[in-house]
C-alpha cells in the first residue's frame, strides 16, 4: 500500500488529525474521512465547481487539491454556514429565489459566493454573473442564483450602511465625533 502521512487539518474551526495517502484529494478527505458530505463531486476535474470550499477564505476546487496541501490552512465547507437550524442570509436568499432545484450544485455555489462577497461586497450584477459562471448548474438556468447572490449582497450593503449610520449616531451622541 502507498505511503501514508500524518496531517492536521483545520475544517470549520475544528482541528482533525488524519493518516492519509498523499494522493487523497481534499474533497475525498472531507467527504469520506471527516463525514462532511455537503461538499459534492460533479466532475473531479476542476470544471463544475460542485466541490468548491473556502481555503483561507478564498474559493477553491476541493477535487483538485490534495489534502496534504491543505495542512495549516483554514478550510470552510457548506456545513459551516448555518447556525444550528438558523440559515445564513446567503442560504435564505438561495431559498427565496429558488436558486436550487436538485441542490447538488448548491454547496459549491454557496461557498463560491460566500468567499466572493467577503472580498467584493459591492460587486455589480455583471460581476456576480461572471462569478456564477465559474460553476455549473444543470437545473436552474443560473438566473435565480445570480438573483440570490445579488440580493444577499444588497442586503448586506444595506445593513452595513445601517450599521455605519448607527455607529456614527452613537459616536455623535457620545461626543466623540468631532475631528473625525
Amino acid at each position: 500500500m502507498t505511503d501514508r502521512q500524518l496531517i492536521t487539518l483545520r475544517v470549520n474551526g475544528e482541528p482533525y488529525e488524519l493518516v492519509i495517502e498523499p494522493r487523497r484529494t481534499l474533497a475525498d478527505t472531507l467527504r469520506q474521512d471527516l463525514g462532511l458530505t455537503g461538499t459534492h463531486l460533479g466532475c473531479e476535474h476542476g470544471i463544475c465547481g460542485a466541490c468548491t470550499v473556502l481555503v483561507d477564505g478564498a474559493p477553491a476546487r476541493a477535487c483538485l487539491m490534495f489534502a496534504v496541501q491543505a495542512e495549516d490552512r483554514d478550510i470552510r465547507t457548506v456545513e459551516s454556514l448555518a447556525d444550528g437550524d438558523e440559515l445564513s442570509d446567503l442560504q435564505r436568499a438561495f431559498s427565496a429565489h429558488h436558486a436550487l432545484q436538485c441542490g447538488f450544485c448548491t454547496p459549491g455555489f454557496l461557498m463560491l459566493a460566500e468567499g466572493f462577497l467577503a472580498e467584493r461586497p459591492e460587486a455589480t450584477r455583471e460581476e456576480i454573473r461572471e462569478l456564477v459562471s465559474s460553476n455549473l448548474c444543470r437545473c436552474t438556468g443560473y438566473q435565480p442564483i445570480v438573483d440570490a447572490v445579488e440580493d444577499c449582497a444588497r442586503r448586506r450593503q444595506a445593513s452595513r450602511r445601517e450599521h455605519d449610520r448607527a455607529a456614527c449616531g452613537e459616536a455623535e451622541r457620545s461626543g466623540h465625533a468631532a475631528g473625525a
Partner: peptide
C-alpha cells in the same frame, strides 16, 4: 410556498447516493 426540500440541501445535510456509508 417556500420549498420544504431547501433547508437540508442548503446546509449540506441532503443525502445523495455517494453520501451513504
Amino acid at each position: 410556498v417556500p420549498r420544504r426540500e431547501d433547508p437540508r440541501l442548503l446546509t449540506g445535510r441532503g443525502r445523495f447516493v455517494d453520501d451513504i456509508r
